[in-house]
Design a protein around this nucleic acid. Sequence first.
RNA 1: GGAGAGGUGGCCGAGUCGGUCGAAGGCGCUCGCCUGCUAAGCGAGUGAACGGGGUCAACCCGUUCCGAGGGUUCGAAUCCCUCCCUCUCCGCCA
Length: 425
Amino acid sequence: MLDSKYLRDNLDAAEARLATRGQGAYLAAFRDLDSRRRELLGEAEGLKAEKNRVSAVIGQTKDKSQVAGEIVRMKEVSGRIKTLDDTLKEVEAELDLLLLTVPNLPHEEAPVGADESANREVKRWGTPAEFAFAAKPHWELGEALGILDFERAGKLAGARFALSFGAGARLERALIGFMLDLHSERHGYTEVLPPFMVNRATMTGTGQLPKFESDLFHLDDPDYFLIPTAEVPVTNIYRDEIIAAAQLPIRFTAYTPCFRKEAGSYGKDTRGLIRQHQFNKVELVKFVRPEESDLELASLLADAETVLQQLELPYRVVDLCTGDIGFSAARTFDIEVWLPGQATYREISSCSNFRDFQARRASIRFRREEGAKPEFVHTLNGSGLAVGRTLVAILENYQQADGSVLVPTVLRPYMGGLERITPRK
RNA sequence: GGAGAGGUGGCCGAGUCGGUCGAAGGCGCUCGCCUGCUAAGCGAGUGAACGGGGUCAACCCGUUCCGAGGGUUCGAAUCCCUCCCUCUCCGCCA
C-alpha cells in the first residue's frame, strides 16, 4: 500500500513510476476521493466537537428542563453526524479499496521494461554439465526410478499433484532439513513453523488480497485460505505491532507447503513437478530498517544462492524489470537453476524487497528510540529454495547414463548415507 | 460438540444506578533529584491513528480508539444485539 500523504503531493510522479509496470492510471480516482474524505471528516469532526461540548453541559445541569432546547438541537446534530459518517465510510471504503489494489512503486534501480525480455541477467554460477547421452527430463527419470508417480497422484487429487516414494520422498525431506539447517545455523535466521492456513487480514497484509483471491485455495467454513507461500504467515507475525529497534533486523526461515491454484496457467508446464497445486518451499523473511533494505536484499539473495552452490547446481541471477516485478515488490532478483532435461534455466527462487509496502498494509512498525515516532519497517523475502524444483534440478543435473541419480554430497548425511538413487523394486 | 468465565493503556488491574474517563491504583520505562556504588526513596513524564494550524520540528487544537461491528441515548468502557478471540470443566481426538 502506498502512502496517502505522499500521493497527495506526488501524484503525477507516482503515476509515472507505476506506468513503468506496463499499465497506468492506477490513481485516477485518488485525488477526488481523498479531498472528499477530508471535507467530510472536517465537517463531521466539527459537529462532534460541538456535540461533546453541549453534552457535557447537559450532564452538569441538574434540572434538565433548562436544557430541553439543547437536547432537541443535539438530537438533530447527532442525526447530521450520522449521515456524514455514513457517507464518509463509503468514501473511505472506496479509497481503501483503491489503495489496496495499487501495486508498489518499482525501485529506482530496477531495469525499466515492459516484460521479461527486459530482465537483466546479472550473474552466472557453475557450468552446465555436458552429457554423453541425451539428458532426460525429471519426470521420466523419476517414474523410471519408481520415486515419482504423477498418474496415481491424479487419481488421488487431480492434475498438478505429485506422489513420491522411497528415495524421492526422502530426498524432498532431506532438502528441507538441509536448507533449514543452513539458514538457521550459518546465515543467522530463526526457524519458524507457522500455520498453513490463514485468515483474510493476513492475506491482505502481504498483498494477496483483495486483488488475487482467484489464485488462492479457500476454505468456506471457517473462512480460511491455504497459504501460497510462507511469506504470508511469517511476514504477518508482526502485524499491528511496534518492534523495538534493538530487535532489528529480524530474520526468519520457514518450511511450509505452498498451495496455489495456478489459474490462467493451463497448458503450461503440465508435465512433471515444475508447476504444482501443492509444493514445498523453504522461505527466508526479513524485517529491517528502511535504510538497510537494499543491502539486506543482497545478503538474502546470497543466502539463497548458497543453497545452490552447496548442491553444486548451475544457476543464474536475473534482475527483474519493472514490468515483471510482482504486485507487492519494489525490487526482485530471480534465481534460475539450469535444467538439462529441458536445456533451460528455470526460476527456483525469487528474492524481493517490498520496502514499506507490506509493512504499511500490515502496520508493522518500529521505534528508533524511546519516545520516537513509530516508522514502518521494510520487509523482504525470498525462496531459499523452492524444494520441489530443487529436486527437479538434482534429478536432471545428477542423472547418469544408466538412469540412476547421484545424491549431492551435502545431502548424503540427510539420506542415511545414500550416494546414488537406483530403481525402486 | 456441551456447560461456564472473560476480553480495559507496554504489563497487572479498578471502573459505582450511563454523564465532566484516555480512563483510579500498581508494575515497567524515561528524565531529574538524592545516595561511596547498587538497591531503596522523592519529583515529573510516559499510547496510537486521522484531520486542522504552525517558526512545518521535539508545538498547539480537534476527532476517534476500553476485542470487532451494529443499536438505544443529548451523552456509553459502562445498557441491548451480532460476531471474533481467550480461559476452565465435560465429551472427542493427533
